[in-house]
Amino acid sequence: MNAVLQLASEGSFLLGGDAMWETSKIGFNFSFAPGLTKWMIVFWGVMLFMIVAGVIGVRKKALVPTGWQNFSEWAVGGLTNFFTKMIGPKLTKTFGPMLVTFFIFILLSNYSGMLPLNFSTEEGTLSLSNLQAPTSVFSVTAGFALIVFCCVHFAGFRENKLGYFKHLISPVVIMLPFSIIDEIVHPFTLALRLFGNIHGEETVVEQLGTLSVVTSGWVPACMEILGVLFGLIQALIFSLLAAIYISEAAEHE
């Protein structure tokens, strides 16, 4: 994977978690915030979009929903029902909003990587490339997985009190190190899966675009169409696995 990243970072586009937005030539200069990267702006953009869309969706509070309110209720209500069926109403009451927010945020983040809004002025010409999805940064997915990790153990501890930690040494005490590895591997795979899929998809699209003139148009377009599917599947898998881990921890013993 490092080889792919190396190859990618040598291209005419910027990739990787700590790529700086070096577009000072057309007026963007983040020298005042040296740690700020492009995906952080996208992160905020997705946040802003979700909050604005959400506020518009619930603004009217009509008993007979129409338009955007209808869509919001369909989306949030549908996802909440989905998680309720998966993990039960009690856990959904606590973790439902988080899981729904995870799903929508990851979905929109994945799709944000397909928006060709990344202005750059390399070699004196203005060019557009796709934005960098926040979910294609391992630090972000690892952060999300850490949140899930905390929630899993919070749910387990809340439901089973101290008895929750018994599962680490069951059936025998010698299982303890393996159980601990198991607990760490779960969120780790969660982070790695999301990062790998989205990062890989973006990398492939970019690389195909630079491959040759003949294939530069339609091959990446086909890949983007697949990316629409991947984006949805990865958002679903992340929130679904998070829900399953939480319910597994809560139902211990």
Binding site: D18, F43, V137, F138, G143, I147
Partner: peptide, 15 residues
């Protein structure tokens, strides 16, 4: 694929 803790904290906080 290394983790930048500042970025991770950014992601967690913003989320």
């Amino acid at each position: 694929m290394d983790i930048d803790f500042a970025q991770m904290i950014f992601a967690i906080t913003n989320f």
